[in-house]
Design a protein around this nucleic acid. Structure first.
Lengths: 203, 203
DNA sequence: CCGTAAGCACACAGGGCGGTGTATATAAAG
DNA sequence: CTTTATATACACCGCCCTGTGTGCTTACGG
């Protein structure tokens, strides 16, 4: 572990300032939003001097982009890679968000930054498209008639639940899940439904 | 018309500074967002001195709240009051947003202000609940089995389309409308569908 | 042990922000 | 015309923001 990558991401041998910054970003940007979190506060929370922060990131914009890049793994990958679930169950599992998640950070970033050209906004767009693509892929596995369309629809439901949860201060994901169940059942031909009409078709 | 109300809203006899402020707010807050629009810029755009602005509004917060209050009429009322449409058509018409609308300002405000206690955030919540209620009411008129549920579902679709349109920079309302059509058809008992199976029931 | 790079403390620049104070012009109501 | 509310111009305050400059300390690798 002496040299590892020393690439653009690697804090080569220091005491892990970069990691602390990213960790503090995750917390503060989620709790307070991006615009309402100053670099001073962020550096204080990360126990990092401001000078060090600006040696790791050219500016707040880059920091925000990197923050968004590190939001995903626990949310997305954890759902689609679960082999213990049928494709249909995986599609529905995307709506079982843990109550700790305050709001989809991608939507928040896109709204707060308000600039489609901002690197973070671009990443948010790419990410949302990737989610829709994975949903479509899973929909195809589940035997949906129009998987692309279903994927886009489910993605819209997720975003709707996230936005509505934020505005109303009340969990909207159950409602979205209910809609998703309807859409999935409508899109998957009866012969492929794996848990609702199993008894009347496959067994 | 000499005295009219002289109430808190009335610019009693001046040259309409308040109206210009609100007009500029509508434009700038939508184009640039709330946080990225300073009072200096807003006053310049409204051709109003800053002093005057602060004589009409105690602060930016109040201005923002008033701005949100004036967003509605052209969007909401215009849909639900159309008597030329059947209830079912009215539900679907809610998804025919004019392409001029950049994003639901209520979601934007809730995300940007980031404070559920802010008067504008509270109004946004009330408004969203009112929309869901009117959707539910119309769903009841249309004969839906569970109108409250359908109203909440359609409201979620609208918010999802708005959020997704913002993040992706691409119109997501057609997708939402497609989902809405499915939900409506599923929720309305066959005997009550007013334009699909009309010929086999009512006439 | 020594060199070098990572990190630190601290002050400061430059600008935008929300908001105010003051003195002046204008237009309507009487 | 006088009065009075309304709007104006403009300077100003204190605060917080992103971002730097400078010199010093620490710790790891060779």
């Amino acid at each position: 572990m002496t040299e590892l990558e020393k690439g653009p991401t690697g804090s080569r041998r220091g005491r892990g300032a970069r990691e602390r910054i990213m960790s503090a970003s995750q917390q503060l940007f989620r709790e307070q939003g991006i615009n309402r979190t100053g670099m001073d506060q962020l550096c204080a929370a990360a126990q990092v001097s401001k000078r060090t922060a600006y040696q790791h990131f050219t500016g707040k914009d880059e920091l925000v982009a990197e923050y968004l890049r590190r939001c995903d793994p626990s949310v997305l990958s954890g759902v689609f890679d679960r082999t213990d679930l049928t494709p249909r169950e995986r599609l529905l599992a995307a709506f079982d968000i843990p109550p700790t998640t305050p709001l989809c950070p991608y939507i928040a970033a896109a709204v707060e930054l308000h600039d489609p050209q901002h690197p973070a906004s671009q990443f948010a767009r790419d990410y949302k498209e990737a989610v829709a693509a994975r949903l479509a892929e899973t929909a195809r596995e589940a035997g949906a008639a129009a998987p692309e369309q279903l994927g886009e629809q489910l993605a819209l439901l997720i975003d709707g639940a996230a936005a509505r949860t934020r505005v109303l201060n009340a969990d909207a994901f159950p409602t979205a899940a209910a809609i998703a169940a309807v859409l999935i059942d409508n899109a998957i031909p009866a012969t492929a439904s794996d848990d609702r009409r199993r008894d009347e078709v496959s067994s």
